[in-house]
């Protein structure tokens, strides 16, 4: 047995395919001779970019017209895989990626392995790598199933790189009706305003945590981020407490960031948080507890009061 075809579950928006989709293409290219993409949406619009990143074929369902994606994509994928077999299907660890993989696993009766950051072929079998215990250990798991192996990968696990291919062939696919299970309908979309650098691709990230003491103190984090041209982030503790929206959450259940510089203000460094930021090139931590785990990963650790250090830092930066 070897891995010939990997199907990538492609996601994106009006601006094109998501970076995560391109990362999955780079990973799949290194493992299989043929890489294809399934798009539960308008695949034709992204065929050129997906082709440039190594996709031979893009299967496109067209717009889903307000249907919730996962259950419809899974029903369609099941039928699709019957006539277009793949050795593995790669998904991004996103809301729709998880929904689709979960529904597909039930339909195909196949295992799905989540939270992966790496993949290799050993003895013709797909082996995926998942970090555990806050990334202190890595578990390598081999698929032992007959049929397509389903794997989900965390963002920023691979480097997205064009492969120099031409436009991918676009093959339209009919959406399969999942019946009553597919009755969930999207009736409205709300976009929260986003301004300034975004967490995903910022060169510098400044994050705040419980050590800020009160919600108003997050304004310091925003001000410091503004002065450094940085995106502002947060630990789960203050997102759960309602100080800042979920979109700012860095960590296992939030965003994975790998900026050049990460500044952690009043963050103790729970495993949940470390998973999301310890891949940063340089880490600066300010916390009053010298025992805080964040100091174990910081290149520069300041044991001190964020309410003194950050205002002083802001003044110093303004004076320059």
């Amino acid at each position: 047995m070897s891995v010939e075809t990997i199907l990538v579950f492609g996601e994106g928006d009006e601006s094109g395919p998501s970076v995560l989709t391109l990362e999955l293409l780079a990973a799949a290219r290194g493992l299989a001779t043929n890489v294809e993409v399934f798009v539960a949406g308008d695949g034709a619009a992204v065929a050129t970019e997906l082709g440039a990143h190594g996709a031979s074929t893009v299967y496109s369902t067209g717009a889903l017209d307000g249907k919730l994606m996962g259950v419809h994509a899974a029903a369609t994928l099941q039928t699709h895989l019957d006539s277009n077999p793949a050795d593995a299907v790669f998904f991004g660890q996103t809301a729709d990626g998880r929904d689709t993989a979960a529904r597909l696993a039930v339909r195909l009766d196949q295992p799905v392995i989540t939270n992966n950051v790496g993949a290799v072929i050993e003895d013709g079998t797909l082996v995926v790598e998942e970090p555990v215990f806050g990334g202190t250990q890595n578990v390598f798991t081999a698929f032992r199933n007959e049929g397509p192996s389903l794997a989900l990968f965390r963002p920023k696990s691979f480097e997205a790189e064009p492969a120099g291919g031409g436009t991918a062939a676009v093959v339209p696919v009919d959406v399969v009706d999942p019946g009553a299970a597919g009755s969930a309908t999207v009736t409205g979309r709300h976009i929260e305003e986003r301004s300034g650098p975004q967490l995903d691709d910022a060169e510098v990230v400044v994050s705040g945590g419980r050590g800020l003491g009160q919600p108003e103190a997050y304004a310091m984090v925003d001000e410091l981020a503004g002065l450094l041209g940085a995106a502002s982030g947060a630990s789960r503790a203050i997102v759960d407490a309602g100080w800042v929206p979920y979109a700012k959450q860095v960590g296992q259940t939030g965003k994975v960031v790998k900026p050049n510089v990460y500044v952690a203000c009043g963050i103790s460094g729970a495993t949940q948080h470390l998973v999301g930021m310890k891949g940063s090139k340089n880490i600066i931590a300010i916390n009053k507890d010298p025992e805080a785990p964040i100091f174990g990963v910081a290149d520069l650790g300041i044991v001190g009061d964020v309410h003194k250090v950050i205002p002083a830092l802001i003044e110093a930066l303004k004076a320059r």
Partner: peptide
């Protein structure tokens, strides 16, 4: 239908300089 083939220790980030704030 899956098998853990090995568990490895991740490369640990080395802690850098930690200083006490004295203003």
């Amino acid at each position: 239908r899956q098998e853990t083939v090995r568990v490895t220790d991740a490369e640990e980030r080395q802690a850098g300089e930690v200083i006490e704030d004295e203003g």
